[in-house]
Every structure is written in structure tokens, then in C-alpha cells.
Design a protein around this nucleic acid. Structure first.
Lengths: 231, 231
DNA sequence: AAGAGTGGGATTGTATACAATTATACGAGG
DNA sequence: CCTCGTATAATTGTATACAATCCCACTCTT
């Protein structure tokens, strides 16, 4: 939450600490480091060819991002997410994506609207072809455009963080063709509400869109995979 | 966003880094370090009698908390918040406090409800006496109880962060006796809705409560103080 | 006089050394 | 056999040393 914008962009790429941070985060999100696994400073440092210092600083950031938990004098452990956490996130996101859509209705630029239309058009094409990877990519991008369009650094950052956060469990969300199509239809409706300057409708649609995404996720076996406990 | 709960509580008090972190945060929130001021590692280290290492780590946390911005190889600067940021935060908080109240309606324990009642009762007393410091304290505590009661680590953490974040500009929010009373009345209404298990009403009331808090803040001169630019 | 280049000082970035703490293993005593 | 305590190893916490970068003033050139 900052001048909140590009703090990451500014840091993460060029410093050792930033690269270490990204690497570990990716490894957690991709599942290389699993829940409750202990991360040791020296081991990771050696693996990446750096000293403990940047690793430690990266740990501190990861802790605040919520990906690990640091117990003083003991160690850093990969955080588990429970199925309930995921549900909570989606409830929160539902409200905030709604707010974002509402704000975007007033603030969106012509260019952003055009990119949205293009995005939806392309997604239709890839849905027909069954290109799931591209669908996921376009879905991410659609929401990114929305985040940018709301013209609120705070909200944009928050939603990006959440989006990032659920990537761990979202792998298969769009993996069924039917959901891919439905999702893109919902995108279209949101876009049209924004285009028509109907903020209330855009908010409601974005709301529902998130809830549908969550329901679909649950239907496709989130609970089967992760059960009630932490994942 | 973690197992997200007490990571702070676990860390901040016993390690040097934690104490440094708290100290700097307090100094920023209290206004000792002002907007855009540069924080130098050695200076702060000397002031607190520690080396650069814990200071640096504290900086990394402060950055993620959004209180400072670190520009690589250059320095750490106290973050400015714009009036728009504050407005955005309150819009976000309005929704999330509503969600929190809704969830709390189902999950709140008898003890939490009792503490709420006590809190409101006490606040009434201090409002009559004009004890503004205690009012602020009780207001914080009321919301804390609500955050705990919603039984969602994610939401609890998020709201606490926001709450923390706006402390910088909130000093005077409750400083008028009329607002203090009105605020406490709203607390009572929220509490009663929760007690009556009316989740929708609790949500709406919490919603409005936040918006009122913001409106009051604006009325009392947020814009006068900070203008349109960063503060 | 204006601008590019250059050098020194200050500041951050990284690595390493040392201290403190915690976990583990082993043995003594019950 | 179990428990407790101690010693030792492993790990984190902190301090310091060294490297890289940046900022600013000064000079040299045109």
C-alpha cells in the first residue's frame, strides 16, 4: 500500500534482493516449495549464488506478502492457505473487483476500452480453438486492464496482490472450455456496461463474475484437492 | 496475507529489527518523519544504537507496509499519500468493513459481543466527559473486535493494515465531540444488528459508518490540510 | 560563460564474521 | 525404560568490512 504503485517494479528486477525475492516467490507459487516447508537462508543463498543478506531481506518481504511466516530465531516456513482462505479471498475480491469496475466506468480511457474489446474478441477466437493457455493469459490481461482503468493506485495494487496470491490454487480455473466461454461472456457484459457508463451494472456484473469464478473453482475440485485443511 | 494472523505480534517485539520497525513506523505515523523525508540507515542506526542490518530489514518491511518507498542505490523516502488515496482507502474500507460485519454476524462469540457492549457503554461515558483520547482508543478497539469476530485471517489482516495506514491522517477524526457521539451510536447500531443476527443490516450499517467517518474527516479539514496533492 | 567530464565523499548493496538462540543427541540418574 | 540435563551442532540475529553506485562540486575545454 503505497505510493504504492511501482515499488515492486522499481526494486525487484535490478537488485540481488529483488531477484531473490522474485525467485522464491515463483518457487512458492509454482509449488517447488511446499506448505510448511522450512526455507533456510544459507541453502537458498548457495543455490542462487548470493550471500545470506539479500536472502534475509527477501524473506522479510515474503513474510509481508504472506507467502512465508518467519518465527524469530527459528526459521521461515512456507505459509499454508486453507480452503477457507481461498473462499475469503474471493469474497473480498468480488467486492473489490466490483468497486474497480464501478470506478473504471468513470475513468476508463478510450485506449483501454479498445484493448478490452480486442481482448474479448481474441478470447472468443481462442475459446473456439480450445487454446487454454491463451485464454488464461487473456483473462489475466482483462483484469489487469480493469485494474489500470479504475485509476486508483491503492485498489490496483490490492487487486494485483490478491490475483497473485490465488495463482497458487487457480491453475485449473479456466481449464474447462465451458467456463472459458462463460467467463469471456461475462467479460463482454462488464465491458458493455462500462461502455454504456452504467456504473452500477458494471459493479454488479464484476461482482458476480468473481463469484462465478469461485463457484467454478469449487465445482472443479478445489475441495477435492485441498480438503478442509491447509493446502 | 498469511497464516496471516499474528506474524507481527510474533516478530515485532523481541527482535532488534522488530523494535526498529515499530519505532520508525511510529515516528512516521506521529509525524516525526515527514513526507518525502529521506531516511538514512546509519543515522537511524546510530540513533537507536544498532547497526545497519536491522535497520535495513525494517526498511524492507516498511516499504511493503507502504510507509516508505525505497529507490535502489538511492535511499528510503517517507511515502506521501494523496487526498485521493485516502478517499480510495475509505471506499475500500467501507466495503470490507461491511463484509466483516456481515461475516461477524455469523461467527461472533458471546465474549466478543460482551466486550463490544462494554466498549460502547464505556465510550458513552467518555463521550460525556469529553475524553477524546479514550474515545479514540475505544474506537480502535471496537473495530479490532469486529475484525477478530469475522473469523477471517485474510480480512482481519487487510483491515488492520488499512486501519494502520490511515492513522497518519486520522488524528483529528474523532476530535469533535459530536462525531465521537455519532460514531459510538453507529457502533451501537452495528452491534445490535449483529446481536439480532441481521447480517445484511450489519453490513449496510458498517458500510455507512465508514462513509460517515470519511465525510466527517473531509468536513473537518482534510482537504484544507493536505490539498489535492500529496501530504 | 556553459557544458561535459572527473574525482571525491556519502550512501546503499553485498559479503562475511561473530554472537545468540534453538534444536538435537547423548548420557546420567532415577 | 523414561526423564532430565548438558553439550554440541545448526540456524538465525547482529555487526562490521568491503564493493558498487550515486550525487555534487570542481575543473577543464570549447
Amino acid at each position: 500500500m503505497n505510493s504504492y504503485d511501482n515499488r515492486h517494479a522499481a526494486n525487484e528486477q535490478y537488485s540481488l534482493r529483488g531477484r531473490v525475492f522474485q525467485k522464491i516467490r515463483d518457487d512458492i507459487l509454482s509449488g517447488k516449495y511446499k506448505e510448511h516447508e522450512e526455507l533456510k537462508e544459507v541453502a537458498i543463498g548457495e543455490e542462487l549464488g548470493v550471500s545470506r543478506t539479500p536472502v534475509r531481506e527477501a524473506f522479510r518481504q515474503l513474510e509481508l506478502e504472506g507467502l512465508i511466516q518467519i518465527i524469530p530465531n527459528k526459521g521461515a516456513y512456507v505459509t499454508g492457505i486453507t480452503a477457507k482462505d481461498v473462499k475469503d479471498i474471493y469474497m473480498i475480491r468480488s467486492l473489490l473487483e466490483g468497486l474497480c469496475a464501478r470506478m473504471a466506468t468513470e475513468k476508463i480511457t478510450k485506449e483501454q476500452l479498445e484493448e478490452m474489446e480486442e481482448n474479448i474478441y481474441l478470447a472468443q477466437f481462442h475459446a473456439d480453438k480450445g487454446h487454454m493457455d491463451q485464454m488464461a493469459e487473456l483473462d489475466n490481461r482483462f483484469h489487469d486492464i480493469l485494474y489500470e482503468a479504475c485509476d486508483s493506485k491503492m485498489l490496483e495494487h490490492l487487486l494485483r496482490d490478491f490475483h497473485q496470491y490465488v495463482l497458487r490454487v487457480r491453475q485449473k480455473t479456466l481449464s474447462t472450455n465451458t467456463r472459458g466461454r462463460a467467463s469471456n461472456d461475462e467479460h463482454r457484459q462488464i465491458m458493455e456496461a462500462i461502455k454504456a457508463k452504467d456504473a452500477a451494472k458494471a459493479e454488479e456484473l464484476a461482482n458476480i463474475h468473481m463469484i462465478n469464478a469461485y463457484d467454478n473453482m469449487v465445482k472443479n475440485g478445489l475441495n477435492d484437492i485441498y480438503g478442509d485443511e491447509s493446502i
